[in-house]
């Protein structure tokens, strides 16, 4: 439809009004802090506010990125993400496939599997923390009684937290996979079965490729979830022990630089930039390798 110039400008005005709230919030709380990181990363900040900062340029990046603490944080983060995301998605897929048919009791099973989505971080951490406690937990009864205990061991603390994160991710993963499965057209699956393909073949050759948009979505969501893991580490391990136990994933390392024993805003800025770059790389990689294989029905 053709609008008069006056009507068109009225539209622009309305658009500006409608866009303004979101843009303002984004401007102040998303874009500004993001770019500010780049500026702050060039300054060596004092241990206490009120004392002057020193401009040292890119050497701050160099000194932080080459430190052993950063290296170890990076490794922990990568290990954690690579452990949590694929395992969580696979388990969710398995459960979704099992719960996919409309059989007796399915509704109850579905509610059960989804329930971890509503267990918040603190709830999950406290429950698992108690279960894994060497004195009041269940592991010694099961014969698992290492010294040092799981959550105090540099080797086992991170996998333990990963196990907890997988449990909590299970609900989300299940819901995503189930929705994906339920949206698949039955006719294709029927056709392949009539052609004589066994259940296993059907699954891998037909179902999974058709699920690829869902799997891609699950990967993206799961990766972000894994990178955001923080509460469990804070509640169960705490700021003092995190680096020694190798659970100071990047986000936790950032937190320690903001409110730890020795806050260092310059360092926090550098680490925030690193976190952004890593998440960006992961997403782009997924876009390239997974989305390329994504098979859209009808395309």
């Amino acid at each position: 439809m053709i609008l008069t110039p006056k009507a068109r400008r009225k539209n622009w005005g309305l658009a500006a009004l409608f866009l303004f709230p979101s843009l303002f919030i984004f401007g102040v709380f998303t874009f500004y802090p993001f770019f500010e990181n780049f500026r702050l990363a060039m300054f060596q900040t004092p241990p206490y506010p009120g004392l002057p900062s020193k401009y040292i340029g890119f050497s701050q990046y160099a000194s932080i990125l080459s430190s052993s603490e950063f290296m170890q944080s990076l490794l922990s983060t990568l290990f954690f993400v690579l452990l949590v995301v694929p395992t969580g998605l696979l388990l969710g897929l398995a459960l979704a496939v099992a719960a996919h048919k409309a059989l007796r009791g399915m509704a109850i099973f579905r509610v059960i599997f989804s329930s971890t989505v509503v267990t918040s971080v603190a709830v999950g951490a406290l429950i698992f923390g108690t279960l894994m406690n060497p004195i009041v937990g269940f592991l010694p009864w099961l014969g698992i009684n290492p010294n040092p205990p799981l959550l105090q061991s540099p080797t086992w603390a991170l996998p333990s937290i990963a196990a907890m994160a997988i449990w909590q991710f299970l609900g989300l993963s299940f819901i995503v996979m189930l929705a994906g499965l339920q949206s698949l057209p039955d006719d294709v699956l029927e056709a392949s079965r009539v052609d004589g393909a066994g259940a296993w073949t059907t699954f891998w050759r037909v179902t999974v490729p058709m699920l690829s948009p869902t799997i891609f979505f699950g990967l993206v969501v799961g990766t972000i979830y894994a990178f955001q893991t923080f509460g469990q580490i804070d509640i169960l391990i705490g700021s003092q022990n995190a680096s020694q136990l190798h659970v100071n994933v990047l986000l936790y390392y950032i937190y320690q630089s903001i409110q730890g024993t020795n806050p260092d805003p310059g360092q926090a800025a550098v680490l925030s930039i690193v976190l952004f770059v890593i998440i960006l790389i992961f997403t782009l990689l997924q876009l390239r390798f997974v989305e390329r294989r994504v098979h859209y029905a009808g395309k």
């Binding site: 984004f26 102040v28 709380f29 998303t30 874009f31 500004y32 802090p33 993001f34 500010e36 990181n37 702050l40 972000i224 990178f227 955001q228 923080f230 986000l251 950032i254 937190y255 630089s257 903001i258 805003p265 926090a268 800025a269 925030s272 930039i273 976190l275 952004f276 998440i279 960006l280 997403t283």
Partner: peptide, 17 residues
């Protein structure tokens, strides 16, 4: 593009603000 900037990356400065 805001979807690409996770909140955790902006925490430091937001706290300051």
């Amino acid at each position: 593009s805001t979807l690409m900037i996770p909140f955790e990356v902006t925490v430091t400065q937001n706290l300051s603000t």
